[in-house]
Design a protein around this nucleic acid. Structure first.
Length: 584
RNA sequence: GGGACUGUAGCUCAACUGGAUAGAGCAGGUGACUUCUAAUCACCAGGUUGUGGGUUCAAUUCCCGCCAGUCCCGCCA
């Protein structure tokens, strides 16, 4: 994705070089690949490094750069918007006229056709599976990272022209549920609470695992046998237990629905493990008969050899595993949704598991296995180590949300009480809290661990979601108070302050940032681009007043610029799943 | 034992995928609110990019060895 200036520069450079005797044939693509940004805006907007020319010209790079600069001046070669060409050391630096730069992007934003999706060659249909919470367990801050990541990728891929199916896959069967229900039926004395019953089930699950772990050896064996029986009953469809399962499962689903709504996340389809359980078992049994899978120590699996090893697909007691269900789920995805690509947003600890799943699908004859992609992300850790629902040392999403909301109310919205309607205060707090939470989760490279510390999440200064939202709101305020509609006809050539120019450049680069964020599966790239935009705006805010602009023409030009910044911030935040308020 | 990921300022993170003087935010120091909102801005200070080699005109970036952290390696998810 190259912009008009880069394309113009590339062909101009090619023209310039082809007039030199000793130079080989160059392509525009090669020129484009070489172009980069100087580290300091004062040096120019684009830079052409001359190192690779040295071997052809048999001269030192700085000498080549100087010569090229001179030649450029003497020839009639020119490129769109270039107002200065200068050699600095081994680089040939180009400065684009700030007015031309602004004119290349601001009117387009004002007219509303700057955020059109780039055309993907073959409009691929992509399924992105994310969130995957387990019922009967608490929804903690680790789950939040997954949701933020998956939802942002869905939005970014859609913006980039893909057809996206956002999918959830809820774990509503398995050992953990047997444990929870075992405790619920045999030990629990308390009535379920009115609210957040799913989280309460999570507590029961924790109590169950602790009871199991702390029991004396003989007692533990008995307990484990009881849990196994419950699991078998669950899979066998025991009517009484099934009713309990249905009821408690719904409590968790209600919790999840409330959380997703609060976060503004929605799914195009929802799979349940309970739906693919039986089918998975059939697939494995059939595969064993067909000789694709093998019986081993009473269980069924597949020998994937070498680095993937033996992959277990069905337990010896006939109950299913994660792997069992993953086979059936993959089949569903491809057979029923006609997708071209299947992305799994799942923790990095399951990297081997998914390599094994995809390899197994391949062995089964599924060519689509090649199109499956596991997107691993690192865990949210506590300072003392890994969070574990089993051990109960988790920070629940609801706890974090409560703390942030309370902190915002007391620190920033006390003064609005009475001035604003209560509902607006609450809704604005929610929007800021969502911004803080999602930005916090997305601004970091997915491959890196997040060590959770509550005080970090309550910050509203610096590199935070709040900062971005604040920048947006200030522009809204400017436009509101000025009472003038931003016009695409404003004179962009007046926007020549370095701070104004920096903004134009940011806006011009926006679509590319979104594109990279999608192709590299890193919303963090977009998050950083937006933070840079907000920071450059805050600088321009203090140096380039709209209200106090020297002339009316300049005022209109700045209004157009800031309006473009606001629109871009809003669009970018939207792609991260954040909706900024209009005032704070 | 084998494998994956990570290691950059006191702390949390960037670095346009191999380029110029490695940048931000917190925390610390100094300034700026009768001004389009100070949830902000300007400035100072802070570095042998874990470590040792190698490839290259050029390495935080690519390759190899070692160290440290996290995680995975058949009846958990």
């Amino acid at each position: 994705m190259k912009n008009v200036f880069e394309r113009a520069l590339a062909s101009a450079l090619m023209e310039l070089l082809s007039s030199c005797d000793s130079a080989p044939e160059w392509s525009v693509a090669e020129m484009l690949a070489l172009l980069e940004h100087p580290p300091d805006a004062a040096l120019g907007d684009y830079a052409f490094p001359c190192f690779q020319l040295a071997r052809f010209f048999r001269k030192a790079p700085p000498a080549i750069a100087a010569e090229l600069a001179e030649q450029w001046g003497n020839s009639d070669v020119s490129a769109h918007g270039v107002e200065q060409v200068q050699a600095t050391g081994p680089y040939l630096n180009f400065t684009i006229s700030p007015g031309v730069l602004a004119d290349a992007i601001l009117p387009a934003i004002a007219k509303g056709h700057s955020f059109d999706a780039p055309q993907v060659a073959a409009r691929e249909r992509v399924m992105i599976e994310f969130s995957q919470p387990n019922t009967h367990k608490g929804f903690h801050v680790g789950h939040l990272r997954n949701v933020a990541l998956g939802d942002a990728l869905c939005r970014i891929f859609r913006y980039n022209g893909y057809e996206v199916v956002g999918a959830n896959y809820i774990g509503d069967v398995g050992t953990h549920i047997a444990k929870c229900l075992w405790y619920y039926e045999s030990f629990n004395q308390d009535p379920p609470p009115e609210q957040q019953r799913g989280a309460w089930l999570g507590e029961l699950y924790t109590k169950a695992t602790l009871l199991l772990e702390d029991a004396p050896v003989e007692q533990r064996k008995t307990y484990q046998q009881e849990v196994r029986e419950i699991l078998k009953k669950l899979e066998g469809g025991d009517p009484k237990l099934d009713a309990t399962w249905q009821e408690t499962r719904q409590w968790s689903l209600d919790d999840f629905a409330e959380i997703y709504e609060w976060l503004g996340v929605h799914f195009d389809c929802v799979f349940f493990e309970s739906e693919v359980d039986d089918e998975g078992k059939e697939i494995v049994l059939q595969g064993e008969q067909d000789g694709v899978f093998q019986l081993s120590e009473g269980a069924i699996g597949i020998d994937l050899e070498e680095e993937l090893g033996f992959f277990l697909l069905l337990k010896s007691d006939g109950t299913t595993l994660y792997s069992t269900k993953d086979l059936a789920l993959a089949k569903h995805k491809f057979d029923q949704f006609g997708i071209d690509r299947s992305i799994y947003v799942v923790g990095a600890e399951q990297t081997l598991h998914f390599k094994q799943v995809f390899a197994t699908l391949r062995r089964m004859g599924y060519e689509q296995a090649e199109l499956c992609h596991h997107l691993p992300y690192a865990l949210v850790m506590l300072p003392e180590g890994k969070m574990s629902s089993r051990a109960g040392n988790v920070i629940l999403f609801s706890q974090l949300r409560q703390k942030i909301m309370d902190s915002l109310r007391t620190q920033h919205f006390q003064a609005r009480k009475g001035e604003w309607p209560d509902e607006e205060i609450e809704e604005t707090c929610r929007k800021v809290a969502v911004a803080a939470l999602k930005y916090g989760m997305l601004a970091q490279d997915p491959a890196k661990q997040i060590v959770f510390s509550m005080e970090d999440w309550l910050k509203t200064e610096g590199d935070t979601g709040t900062y971005l939202v604040y920048a947006y709101v200030r522009i809204c305020s400017i436009v509101r108070q000025l009472g003038i509609e931003p016009s695409a006809d404003a004179d962009c050539s007046l926007l020549c302050h370095p701070n104004e120019k920096a903004l134009s450049r940011r806006l011009l680069d926006f679509n590319r940032a979104v594109w990279s964020a999608g192709e590299q599966f890193k919303p963090s790239l977009l998050a950083h681009a937006l933070y840079g935009l907000a920071r450059d705006f805050s600088r321009a805010y203090t140096t380039c007043s709209v209200k106090h602009a020297k002339t009316e023409a300049l005022q209109h030009a700045r209004l157009l610029l800031f309006h473009g910044v606001a629109e871009t911030l809003k669009q970018g935040l939207h792609l991260l799943g954040i909706t900024p308020p209009e005032r704070l």
